[in-house]
């Protein structure tokens, strides 16, 4: 699956990091970094990451 984060909306809350730490992380400055593709086995975690995003900035394709 493909993951798109609208970085104009993202405010680095980090909620996605707690749901899907294999895909999303906060760097030492507290800014979001993420993988643009993820294995199907992570779908549930990535869906939850998109659910809990306070800005609803995460889109999943495929």
């Amino acid at each position: 699956m493909k993951i798109i984060v609208d970085m104009d909306r993202c405010q680095d809350h980090g909620q996605c990091v707690f749901s899907a730490p294999d895909v999303f992380r906060l760097n030492d400055e507290g800014h979001l970094e993420y993988e643009e593709t993820a294995d199907e086995s992570l779908r549930d975690a990535v869906e939850e990451a998109a659910d809990v995003c306070p800005l609803q900035a995460i889109t999943i394709e495929g």
Partner: peptide
Amino acid sequence: GLPGAIPRYR
């Protein structure tokens, strides 16, 4: 503030 500290305290 202190955004970089979030993962550690959580």
